[in-house]
């Protein structure tokens, strides 16, 4: 069914139409939340909160990109969840190494389609990127996740953060430079093809 018809029905109170919209965008929402929160449970909570919040606010939807509108609610839910976490720090129940680092996600190891070496490299890369993402401030992180991870265009991101496209570009530029600096520092952990400072001294 056409998205605009689903939205119209959802606004009129049709729960099935609303749930159809949720099914369309829940994966995107969850992944954005996961990259912002860096925690599966918190991302799930934020996504659920966002869905409930969207249901309450359907009356205030005034057209435009539904995806951007939903992502804005998701990012706000993530900010709320991060604030909650700051007030009540939690302790992970997942097993940790001697250096207090969590043991790699079993999903990666269980992925049979990849070879062992590739799986480990990917895991290292993801961990390094996620660690550096976490070091960015929230505004930069949101923009970078949406553009570079989710592949959204500038206009959509501008709508999500309710700022001009120029702001998106400048935040993205700064975020990328900071990410690069961060990954250089952890470059030793990255696979060779992803080390960013191996061409530095060529000149």
């Amino acid at each position: 069914m056409d998205e605009s018809i689903l939205i119209e029905k959802a606004v009129d109170g049709d729960l099935d139409a609303f749930n159809q919209l949720v099914l369309t965008y829940q994966e995107l929402a969850y992944n954005v939340a996961y990259r912002i929160m860096a925690d599966e449970a918190a991302a799930a909570d934020a996504t659920q909160d966002a869905v409930i919040s969207m249901y309450r606010k359907l009356d205030s939807y005034r057209g435009g990109s539904f995806k951007a509108w939903f992502l804005r609610i998701v990012t706000n839910a993530c900010y709320d969840e991060l604030r909650k976490q700051k007030r009540r720090p939690t302790v992970s129940l997942e097993p940790e190494t001697d250096e207090s680092e969590p043991i790699e996600s079993p999903e990666w190891i269980a992925d049979k389609s990849l070879g062992l070496e590739e799986t480990i490299m990917n895991a290292q890369l993801e961990k390094a990127i996620q660690d550096c993402l976490n070091k960015l401030n929230q505004k930069h992180r949101v923009v970078m996740v949406m553009v570079d991870v989710s592949g959204e265009d500038y206009e959509t991101v501008a709508e999500v953060i309710q700022s001009p496209v120029g702001t998106v570009k400048s935040r993205l530029s700064r975020a990328r430079l900071k990410m690069q600096e961060c990954l250089k520092l952890t470059g030793e952990l990255l696979p060779d093809q992803f080390r960013l400072n191996n061409e530095e001294d060529d000149d």
Binding site: A29, Y30, V51, N122, E126
Partner: peptide
């Protein structure tokens, strides 16, 4: 990687 949702978030 793009993670699959742990559950459906429908109401």
């Amino acid at each position: 990687p793009c993670y699959k949702v742990p559950r459906n978030f429908t109401l």
